[in-house]
Design a protein around this nucleic acid. Structure first.
Lengths: 354, 354
DNA sequence: CCTCGTTTTGGTATCGCTACCATGTCTCCC
DNA sequence: GGGAGACATGGTAGCGATACCAAAACGAGG
């Protein structure tokens, strides 16, 4: 009449469980749980004993079980669009790291920027049980996608939007200040005839960068009107813009492109015309993408801590979802992180000032 | 004496569980489980009914519970080193996608290529409960790291190693064939004076590519000795190699660099010397990394399906771990996937043959 | 000394799912 | 006809952890 002996379901060596630790430490599983999760109401003595046991046995909590019991283990989505952003790599590293830390799963979904495609992507996310979504650029600018996600009652964190959207959480750098700083740097080097290549018009970051540039020019005063061309953040568009900027005399002595890909295009075009960078023409970019260090001369640019931003986005998402479940108000949070100007070889004093 | 009414632990609306589906479909939870997991021994009629119910209720299985119950949910590690590999982004996408499909967690760990650093990284992985590791290049070449991991009884899949290591599973392309194909392409264009830049000497892929190049030259016969320089897969090393190749007359009419970064360096140096690519000098690379399409002219190169390879690596890992638990022999598997030559603008017929 | 409140610990009932076994039902073949 | 086998379904008992409650230990105040 005794219970049948239960043989371990999987033949393999089981891993250390909370019970093993409890037995080893001579306390109950609950106490171990409290210690491991940093709960209060544990005496220092027990805490020491338990931690000792944990270390001895090499215990690491089973995420699945923990998630199941605590009804946690939400899935977070990462909706990415144009992978031209060499963002993606670093972004993923940061996001995945944070996800692992919180014990949530990260679900990737690719999405074109058409309404139909975004609707499909959102449906897939919903089907995947996702409760919150990180939106890296350029998707974070799409009101359509945000609306679509909001309709599915998802939390959203937009990353690196130029201006924080009113309807979502957001983590970004200060594009305005960064562009202003970079422009001031060029002016300090002695450049006076500047060229600027704008970013894609439907991304708010483009406008912030442009405003930062304009502000620095304004503050400096006494300068000829800068020459401005429209770009679209692609290499090709940068090439077109560079051709226009370098076709009319007097040539600018420095060109500020709104991202690195376009700056690389400017350098390519300059070389083609026999202009030497940085001496004949200074070129600076924005983003510090992979290409920046992998061309010659290296590109002076603005570095964004992408991995950190992605990580914080996931943090915010987790906090919002867990907080929200406990009824805390989910007011949109906007977090700004520090950027950094990276000085490489592509900008120097102009010939005239040498 | 009746059981206390259990109030749902989290105030929030519970999600649909397998029981809900079972009740709705009028079958037992077990049957639902079998349908959802594609098990056998379910009649078509019941299967239809259940799938209908699943769709109606928008049921999505709880991963945590599933993993817990089936003692699955292993964690897989992804040990990455030199992020110069613009591989990483695509690699992560592929790996994460596969991980999500299998319901395993992916743990990222960065690691320098020194013995001390790798030991530390492995220890962190072990502590994280990781049971298998994907090794993208260049870490997959490090015998030290492989030994270290093996000592911790982890399964390993090396990705894109030139020659499959004897002690690990492996997924890669045929570097030899790809390089041979590319060289044949150059020869078919009419080039006769070729230059070659080798990759990092401690990566087996370098040698395979070099052998492929040499084989094509050999097969063609009747050619002047190609000029060869040593590179290290970095932009900078490519620049040095290019300087040497372009310093001695007669100049080569085509240069094959063992990766894209070095090819980009060749193009930069060529431009600096007033050589026009592709008409004065054809340049081809290998990898189809981001930079290949983002320089001008676009780089003709070999495309590796990185995401796919990463995905297959995770698949293999999961299969090995789960199979291994059931006692299946874990013989090392080597899988080769197809590469593709991408023709862009950086290679054309030589002037002399025009 | 007893009550009250706070700190510390343990017991029990799940979380949602699947492994394993038991039970039927139906066909096949000696 | 009846035993063997394939097929189809249901019941039960956990996986490893936490939530919730109860109980024990302790100190303070009346």
């Amino acid at each position: 009449m005794n219970k049948p002996v239960r043989k371990s379901r999987s033949g393999a060596r089981r891993s250390v469980t909370i019970k093993d630790v409890a037995r080893y430490a001579g306390v109950s599983p609950m106490t171990v749980s409290r210690v491991v999760n940093g709960g209060q109401y544990v005496s220092d003595a027990t805490r020491q004993t338990v931690m000792q046991a944990v270390r001895q046995l090499g215990y690491s909590p089973n995420l699945a079980a923990r998630n199941l019991a605590s009804a946690r283990g939400e899935r977070m989505g990462l909706l990415y669009g144009n992978p031209s952003a060499s963002y993606l790599s670093e972004f993923l590293v940061g996001a995945l790291d944070a996800a692992t830390r919180h014990g949530v799963q990260l679900v990737l979904e690719k999405c074109e920027m058409t309404p139909a495609a975004s609707r499909r992507a959102v449906r897939r996310l919903v089907a995947g049980g996702v409760v919150g979504v990180v939106l890296p650029p350029p998707l974070c600018e799409s009101a359509v996608i945000r609306a679509e996600l909001q309709a599915a009652r998802m939390r959203i964190v937009a990353v690196a939007a130029g201006r924080p959207p009113a309807d979502a959480m957001c983590v970004s750098i200060d594009d305005f200040a960064a562009a202003r700083e970079m422009t001031q740097y060029l002016l300090a080097l002695g450049h006076t005839r500047l060229g600027f290549i704008k970013g894609h018009p439907n991304q708010t970051a483009s406008e912030e960068r442009w405003r930062g540039f304009a502000a620095a020019i304004e503050e400096h005063g006494q300068l000829p009107q800068p020459r401005v061309e429209q770009g679209f953040f692609t290499f090709r568009s940068g090439l077109d813009a560079a051709r226009k900027l370098l076709a009319v005399e007097p040539l600018p002595t420095a060109i500020f492109a709104s991202n690195d890909d376009m700056a690389a295009a400017v350098m390519a075009e300059a070389h083609r015309r026999g202009l030497e960078v940085p001496n004949d023409l200074a070129v600076v970019g924005f983003d510090d993408s992979l290409i920046a260090a992998n061309i010659w001369p290296g590109l002076t640019t603005i570095h964004q801590p992408i991995a950190q931003m992605a990580g914080e986005a996931v943090d915010m998402l987790v906090a919002a979802v867990r907080g929200g479940r406990r009824g805390a108000a989910a007011e949109p949070v906007h977090r700004q992180v520090a950027h950094e100007m990276i000085t490489r070889e592509s900008a120097a004093r102009p010939r005239s000032a040498a």
